[in-house]
Nucleic acid binder design. Structure first.
Length: 336
DNA sequence: CATACGTGGAC
DNA sequence: TGTCCAAGTAT
């Protein structure tokens, strides 16, 4: 067979070890990383496992540029897990600022307490122990084990999934949810030696973030363009359109607005006042460019859409269930 | 396996 | 302008 197509294209279900061409791929991508990688503080020589762990949690579904300032402040304020463990949940959520998904902040806080209580205040190196921490799933456990402790694990994040899909499988985008086949592929294409595997994981992730991007991939700058199954196939478009996350008029939107009010308030907010504030919330007005009176009218319409009070109450119930807000005589407040 | 979960920048 | 997307996790 004189075909130059990547092995997975010829043998999509293969679970066999790496083909002969992989070392060249490894070298090309790792060299590219050495040239083009971003200078991020959680990659610096003086990084700590705790700093890496914090960065990985913050980076879940959140862009690097938004994480950078918050991460820096966070590490200054809470340089060790035990420092964060001693903080109040309210302070933790406020310091989280507007990174989004504030439950991550609460889980990170809980993880810090667990690290203090059963790991002697040190971030555990063991993958299974990392996985057992709140807020840490398959990706983050592997990422910390690899990037903080230099171990050999398959790191599979959205960047790597996309790069693998194009490079090896020939698809524009990976499936909606992570499949067992993707994990097998990640293991199959990873260098056998520990140092090589760490470099490869880091480099492919960066390649996905900077070059092999979701929207407009910069194939002209790709170090492995000639090896790419997707390019070889003529860069066909994605099979199915991604399903957008609904937002307007959902509990989620209301939860976001509630969080904005509670973050800004130092004292408990009386329930009636909270609901009033929500009606005038910028969050809920965002996306409307009409004059103020029209916006207010539209918001009114939004609230009236279907049982508006019930919707607000449901969002509030969600916050209470998450422990993000506490119900007390004085009003609603952040926990702690 | 699908869905809920924040926030804001880019096209 | 509305849609898509960003180093996922828990249920």
């Amino acid at each position: 067979m004189g075909s130059r197509l990547p092995w997975t294209v010829m043998n999509p279900n293969a679970e066999t070890p790496a083909p002969r061409s992989l070392p060249r791929l490894h070298r090309a991508v790792v060299e590219w990383y050495g040239r083009e990688a971003r200078d991020l503080p959680w990659r610096a020589p003086d990084r700590t496992p705790w700093g890496v762990l914090v960065s990985e949690i913050m980076l879940q579904q959140t862009p690097v540029v938004r994480v950078l300032p918050v991460w820096t402040r966070w590490l200054q304020r809470w340089p060790e897990p035990t420092d964060l463990a001693a903080a109040s949940p309210a302070d933790v959520v406020r310091a989280w600022d507007r990174l989004g998904y504030p439950r991550r902040a609460l889980r990170l806080h809980a993880a810090a307490q667990r690290i203090r209580d059963i790991h002697g205040g040190r971030v555990p190196e063991d993958h299974a122990e990392l996985l057992a921490l709140p807020g840490i799933g398959a990706y983050t456990a592997a990422a910390v084990a690899v990037f903080a402790f230099g171990q050999r694990h398959t790191v599979v994040d959205t960047n790597i999934r996309r790069a693998h899909a194009r490079l090896f499988t020939g698809h524009a985008l990976p499936a909606r949810s992570l499949t067992a086949a993707e994990n097998r592929l990640a293991e199959a294409v990873m260098p056998e030696d520990v140092a090589g595997s760490v470099a490869w994981n880091q480099a492919v992730m960066e390649l996905g973030a900077l070059v092999c991007t979701a929207r407009a991939p910069r194939c002209g700058q790709c170090p492995v363009r000639d090896e790419c199954a997707w390019v070889a196939a003529g860069s066909p478009p994605a099979a199915e359109k991604p399903r957008g996350q609904s937002w307007q008029g959902t509990d989620r939107q209301v939860r976001g607005a509630v969080m904005a009010v509670l973050r800004a308030a130092q004292d408990p907010v009386p329930r009636p006042l909270l609901l009033t504030d929500l009606a005038g919330s910028e969050q809920l007005a965002a996306g409307h460019s009409a004059p103020p009176d029209v916006v207010v009218e539209r918001l009114g319409a939004l609230w009236r859409l279907d049982a508006p009070t019930e919707q607000r109450e449901r969002a509030l119930a969600g916050l209470l269930a998450d422990g993000l807000a506490a119900e007390e005589p004085a009003g609603i407040r952040l926990p702690g």
